Computed example of a mutant assay.
Amino acid sequence: GRWRTGVTIEWQEWSALEDEFDNDTIKDQTVSGQPGQLEFQDVIIPRIGTQFRLNENFSFTGGVAYSESPLESNASVDVNYLDTDKWIIGLGVTAEYKKTRILAFPVRFDLAYQHQILEDRTFDIYDTQSAVYPQPSEQVEASGEVNVISGSITLKF
């Protein structure tokens, strides 16, 4: 078997989204200076992964990442923008065959599992139609887990 490991760092410029909302003429989602103003921050997402190649046909992969929420504010007006920081753990297996009895081209089968752990975060929801505005009309908590299973078949020709 043979091991390969990789590390990436991704930068996402979410702060530019505030400028887009400033130019929004349909629904003012920035509510400048008011309670519930949306604020975004740029984020850096580190990832580390490894692959173990068992033989010519089979390999196993695994990795972990931490994704900080780009949503800096804990409030929004008339829309529900909810997001949390999350840990992402992934595992996968690949079977690749250069020759088969049925196909003239190489074929690859992938099966993967991803588990996301969403950290607890509380948000204030503001509703301009509410009798209590400019106070929050509701407080909600975002948290939980996400499980994803995916598979693919790739034909190379």
Rank of each mutant, 00 (worst) to 15 (best):
F52M: 05
S32A: 15
E13A: 10
R121A: 03
A142V: 04
S143R: 13
P35F: 01
S130Y: 08
S143W: 08
Q116H: 05
T100G: 09
G63V: 02
G1T: 00
T84S: 14
Y81M: 07
P46F: 14
W87I: 10
G36H: 03
F105L: 06
K156C: 00
F105T: 11
A104W: 04
S15D: 09
Q114A: 14
Y66P: 09
F58A: 01
T5E: 04
G90E: 13
T122Q: 09
W3R: 14
I26Q: 09
T25C: 05
L54Y: 15
E119A: 11
L71V: 14
T50P: 02
T94V: 12
K156Q: 11
I48A: 15
Q139M: 05
F58Y: 13
D28G: 06
A16Y: 12
Y113K: 00
Y133N: 05
A112R: 13
R101V: 06
K27C: 04
Q41V: 07
I26S: 04
F21D: 03
P134Y: 03
Q116T: 13
L118K: 12
I26W: 12
N147Y: 11
E10N: 03
G62N: 08
Q41G: 10
Q29M: 11
S143Y: 12
K156H: 11
F40Q: 00
D120V: 03
R53Q: 14
N23T: 06
Q34E: 09
E141G: 03
N147R: 12
R121T: 02
I89R: 07
V148D: 08
E18M: 12
E20I: 02
T61P: 00
Q135L: 15
P134T: 05
V7E: 09
I153R: 14
G151I: 12
I48Q: 07
W14V: 05
L17Q: 06
G92I: 03
